Simulated assay, not measured.
Amino acid sequence: MIRGVRGATTVNENDELEIVEATEILLRKMIEENSIEAEMVASVFISVTEDITAVFPAKAMRFIDGWKYVPVMCMREIPVTDSLDKCIRVMMHVNTNSPQQNIQHIYLGDAVKLRPDLNTVDQS
């Protein structure tokens, strides 16, 4: 069965290094907390708010061993009034037998505000 594993993080600046680093930290945490291997992943969607334009955050996946062939796509988040700024969101489509309630969704930085009810994982 395919399950969605969600994650989000924020950056302080529209800076390539900061965006890639924050995205890599988020992806690694999602992978670790859900025991995900690249072969389990059907695809990954990454969205960014309008204020992130310095780099495609999917570049971060290139730094994770074994994830070279995982399909990943970046897109822009809809511009909702008063929404969280400089936010990177990830939706990873994973083949797993884990029940929905056992999936660990990861929210880091200011993104913890998005779903405090789902953020049960230590941010460190």
Rank of each mutant, 00 (worst) to 15 (best):
I25N: 08
I25R: 11
V90I: 13
I106S: 10
S35T: 08
T23Y: 02
N12G: 14
T120P: 00
V121K: 13
N34M: 00
Y107D: 07
G4C: 03
M92V: 07
C87F: 01
R115E: 12
M40N: 15
V20R: 10
D15I: 10
K86T: 01
Q104C: 14
A54M: 04
A22H: 09
K29S: 09
V72A: 12
F56H: 05
P99S: 11
A58M: 07
V94D: 04
N97V: 09
T10G: 04
M30T: 01
R28L: 15
N95F: 10
V55T: 13
V48I: 14
T10Y: 02
V44Q: 01
Q104V: 05
N102M: 14
T81S: 13
V41Y: 02
V121I: 15
R62P: 00
I106T: 07
M30D: 04
V112I: 15
I88N: 06
D65F: 08
A42R: 11
I25L: 09
G66Y: 14
T96R: 03
R62C: 02
M91S: 07
N102I: 02
T10C: 06
S98W: 06
L84T: 09
A54S: 15
I52M: 02
A58S: 14
I78A: 09
V90M: 06
S98F: 11
S43P: 00
E77Y: 05
E24L: 08
W67V: 04
A8K: 02
P79T: 10
A58F: 03
D65Q: 13
D122R: 13
M61F: 10
I2S: 09
V121P: 05
Q100E: 14
Y107K: 03
I19F: 03
V121C: 07
N95S: 12
C74V: 10
D122P: 02
F56M: 05
S83C: 12
V20N: 00
W67H: 07
A42T: 12
I25T: 14
D110R: 15
V70H: 06
R28V: 09
A54T: 09
I46V: 15
L108T: 12
A111V: 08
M75Y: 11
P71R: 06
P116R: 09
G66M: 12
N102G: 05
M73G: 00
D82S: 13
A111W: 06
I2A: 03
A22S: 15
N102A: 12
L114P: 05
M75Q: 05
L84S: 09
D65E: 11
N119G: 12
D15Y: 03
V94G: 02
I64F: 08
S83Y: 10
E37A: 08
E18K: 13
L27W: 05
I36K: 11
R3Q: 14
V48H: 02
E16M: 12
